[in-house]
Design a protein around this nucleic acid. Structure first.
Lengths: 214, 214
DNA sequence: AAACAGCTGTGAAAAAAATCTCAGGTTTCC
DNA sequence: GGAAACCTGAGATTTTTTTCACAGCTGTTT
């Protein structure tokens, strides 16, 4: 009955494992061991086994993991075996670049809407995805059953569009701005993904690392 | 002498604190308490104080933190008070969008080079940043003293350009592809930042969450 | 068929991180 | 000036996460 939940660090590592398994399948490999996975992800084999253990029984005791089976188990546990609708908010250079990224469907995500506050832009842009003015966000998110949103608007509009997405019942948000969003204690998950933010984090690691080396 | 190092989770939280402080400065606020920061970041005040504690003595015992001073301390500890050179590898839609992002310098980062393997593209693109063919990556990274690289190439080239960046002595990489890079045990830090990867992680949280609610 | 090398899964141990408690210090307001 | 409300910093405690050790299974090789 698996009552106790999977630790978040384990979840994110298992997402990486999932990715590796995809690569293995493409190279026609059918079996993989915890130490092979560990090496590829620079982690240790014990941790790989413990993480996989959270999924229930998947390994062949004494004989590694069946790549396909492990991948399917992760997919089933994490809900990666079904399509999810997504949208892009803000159609500047970054937003349109993402809107035109061809591989979302390969991974099970379908961009079903783009939003932009500048009406002129909506009329001039030529895309396969239907576009809407930003004031319709909540409405369209609900109607199209959109689970995931990508925020690519200017900093000053980030909080506003977030509120609208949440009002529409969105379940997850990828925030591409450096703004730290205020989230009500609804069950909406946020992933902050700004290059500036990551640059700062990397700078910190670089700086602290060079200090300890001395 | 601060011999013991700051835990990574604390580092990334302090980066968020840093961001908040910026906002506070812009609104003219001079003092802030741990619980105010905590509320804004939905964490708890004890944890905020412990994190700040890693920086040494910065608070006014009994009277909150001086916003400016705290920000400067984080900047100094994390090396955020100096400029760093960065580059973008891969000038497709995403790469060029990033190359044209105006705010890097505001945050202390200067994009000093763009790389692209398609020579035609290099000649047709009009940018303020000097562009180079990809085979010159290692060379240019070394010559221009580039610390940080952004990888925005197609999946199949990701590992190749990574190897070149490392050969040039890069210190940090933001990997925008879903590929999991193989890194030698040099001191290069990687931040994986692919929308697909984050979508998967969010899907996992959404799925596991809805299971436990039942 | 037996021995060996290599594998998983699990419970125990260790390490790391988050949380709590409390001893003081500050400010504000009467 | 004194009380109340609020604050930081640090040690102790609890919780979470990682690492380890080992029992038991599998496939291969001789």
């Amino acid at each position: 009955m698996e009552q106790y939940s999977i630790p978040k660090p384990a979840i994110s590592r298992l997402c990486l494992v999932y990715r590796i398994l995809d690569e293995l399948i493409r190279s026609g490999i059918q079996t993989v061991s915890s130490s092979q996975i560990a090496e590829r992800l620079s982690m240790n084999p014990h941790n790989v086994r413990k993480d996989i253990g959270y999924l229930g029984d998947v390994g062949n005791l004494g004989a590694g993991y069946d790549v396909e089976k492990l991948k399917n188990t992760i997919a089933a546990t994490f809900g990666l075996n079904r399509q999810r609708n997504a949208c892009v908010v803000g159609l500047g250079r970054l937003g349109t670049a993402i809107l035109n990224y061809e591989y979302f469907e390969t991974y099970g995500y379908v961009i079903v809407a783009g939003f932009e506050s500048n009406i002129n832009k909506i009329e001039t842009l030529r895309t396969a995805v239907p576009l809407f003015p930003s004031y319709q966000i909540a409405d369209v998110v609900r109607r199209f059953e959109i689970d995931l949103g990508i925020i690519a608007v200017p900093e000053q509009s980030a909080q506003k569009v977030t509120d609208q997405l949440i009002k529409g019942g969105i379940k997850g948000i990828v925030n591409l701005t450096p703004v730290i969003l205020k989230i009500p204690h609804t069950h909406v998950f946020i992933s902050n993904m700004s290059i500036i933010g990551d640059f700062n984090y990397l700078s910190a690691l670089i700086t602290l690392n060079s200090k300890t080396i001395q």
